[in-house]
Write a protein that binds this DNA or RNA. Structure first.
Lengths: 126, 126
DNA sequence: CCGTATCCGCCTTGATACTG
DNA sequence: CAGTATCAAGGCGGATACGG
């Protein structure tokens, strides 16, 4: 009935809000860096991951990994040995997220200079 | 000489950092919502934009628009009339960013339920 | 080794008031 | 209409200490 304009979005109100919320969650700095590390290096232990992600604190690593586990992006495997051994790996869902962000990543790489120039031009105005 | 594994990233150290920084900037909640509004509805005035983006404050709208203008994503056009009339529209660069995010948007739409279910499963265990 | 718990500074954000 | 200015509150993230 409604003559909705053509968009790439759902026509169901409220879904957009959920989608935005989800993207906000997922577009977190540490989430993206961890995602990247796991894509590149595969399954990793906690400490190895801490070394792979530059500048992350233990707190943020734990917190972000928990959230990614809850969202179904990573699978956490605990080996009941002493000392403890915990592995993190991407789930198929997590991998698909990485692929979705690939476009943004490529865009950022491709337009790094454009943005840089735009900023310089803007800052030099007046 | 290095036997680098296949990745989608630049092999130049430091570029990744810039790319991450740029994505962090761009993946902001308000930036995405404004981007979406301008893609869907085309050129808009300040007040119209404020109505199109649900829940945004005047401060955040101004701040985000300035940042997007500086980054070269939107063009700001001031019509010197009284009362003031200011239009915002996407630049080609801004539009290309929107297209890059389209993949993430589609992913989020497609996997909304997966994430929802994963969270329920996670919260229900133990 | 793999976390959790606590404290604390800072940055973001929102609310409000004011201006050209 | 389209902003700027100011202030207060809250969350994020780092540092540190401790536990299984």
């Amino acid at each position: 009935m409604e003559n909705q304009p053509l968009t790439r979005h759902s026509d169901t109100p409220g879904v957009d809000a959920l989608v935005n919320e989800l993207i906000g969650r997922v577009a977190d700095k540490w989430t993206l860096l961890i995602l990247e590390s796991l894509e590149e290096h595969g399954e990793q232990r906690f400490t190895a991951l801490a070394r792979l992600v530059p500048g992350i604190s233990q707190k943020m690593l734990t917190q972000t990994l928990r959230q990614m586990e809850r969202d179904g992006f990573v699978q956490r495997t605990v080996h009941p040995v002493i000392p403890p051994h915990v592995d993190y790996r991407l789930t198929p869902l997590g991998h698909s997220l990485g692929e979705a962000f690939c476009g943004v990543w490529l865009w950022a790489e491709a337009h790094l200079r454009d943005v840089h120039d735009a900023r310089n031009a803007f800052d030099a105005r007046d």
